[in-house]
């Protein structure tokens, strides 16, 4: 079988696969930026929001974390059109879903990060006359973000891998593009192997970067 493999189909398929990869990356970056932003708000709501707000944030985070991502993808894909009345493309639906879903996971990381900053730092901020939001923005969050950077990036690698699940609603990401190419050229085996290699190279490379970063942060501390 090995002798019958023909990887020459990859070259003509590349432009199409490249588009798929771009969508996967776009989805990752949007969900990361949006997820960290919303996640930080959720974390703040849980730590220093009123009881109602904290309860809502907790319920949101726990619900998202207890449901398979695939189910969340399906919920958003089928339910958003029910509310808006108009069908939404798979790509757009994926962007919203992943941002909302990842916010729950990033919020747990940010919560740990905020709690890793000592109470004395907040008090020092207050002592300088800062308001709550000022001391959060200027003193606590930058430190929390820095402490948690490796974990945030590791979560992003997982997020990048999870984007392959948009397969369920037919969005054209890296995996889907490779699959379509494989079908078009009648070479699915080669394309699956190729796409696995691409994912591995990206994820392994990033995880090496995170390890390197972790060491540097450990030294600076």
């Amino acid at each position: 079988m090995l002798g019958q493999l023909d990887f020459s189909v990859i070259a003509p398929g590349l432009p199409f696969i490249w588009e798929g990869l771009l969508f996967s990356l776009k989805l990752t970056v949007v969900a990361m930026v949006g997820g960290i932003f919303l996640g930080t708000l959720l974390a703040l709501a849980r730590i220093s929001g009123g009881p109602a707000l904290a309860a809502f944030a907790t319920a949101y985070v726990n619900t998202m974390r207890s449901i398979p991502l695939l189910m969340v993808i399906l919920w958003f894909f089928f339910l958003i059109p029910l509310f808006t009345g108009a069908p939404m493309g798979a790509e757009k639906s994926a962007l919203i879903t992943f941002t909302a879903f990842e916010a729950a996971y990033y919020s747990e990381i940010m919560r740990a990060g905020i709690q890793s900053v000592s109470k004395g730092q907040v008090n020092a901020g207050y002592a300088l006359g800062m308001t709550y939001w000022q001391s959060m923005k200027i003193v606590v969050l930058p430190q929390a973000f820095r402490n948690m950077l490796p974990v945030l990036l590791t979560q992003t690698i997982i997020l990048f891998q999870d984007t392959s699940l948009v397969y369920a609603i037919g969005a054209k990401d890296l995996l889907k593009a490779a699959e379509i190419t494989g079908k078009n050229y009648n070479r699915p085996i080669e394309m699956y192997l190729f796409v696995a290699l691409v994912y591995f190279a990206i994820c392994f490379g990033l995880s090496m970067l995170v390890k390197h970063l972790q060491k540097r942060i450990a030294i600076v501390r």
């Binding site: 079988m1 090995l2 690698i157 891998q161 999870d162 392959s164 699940l165 397969y167 995996l175 699959e179 699915p188 085996i189 699956y192 192997l193 796409v195 696995a196 994912y199 591995f200 994820c203 392994f204 995880s207």
Partner: peptide, 23 residues
Amino acid sequence: VEGFRNVPLLVQLFLWFFVVPEF
């Protein structure tokens, strides 16, 4: 560990289902 951790689960599933039997 690195092998199984750095490829998406869905892709691994396709590898087992479509690719491995060929070999």
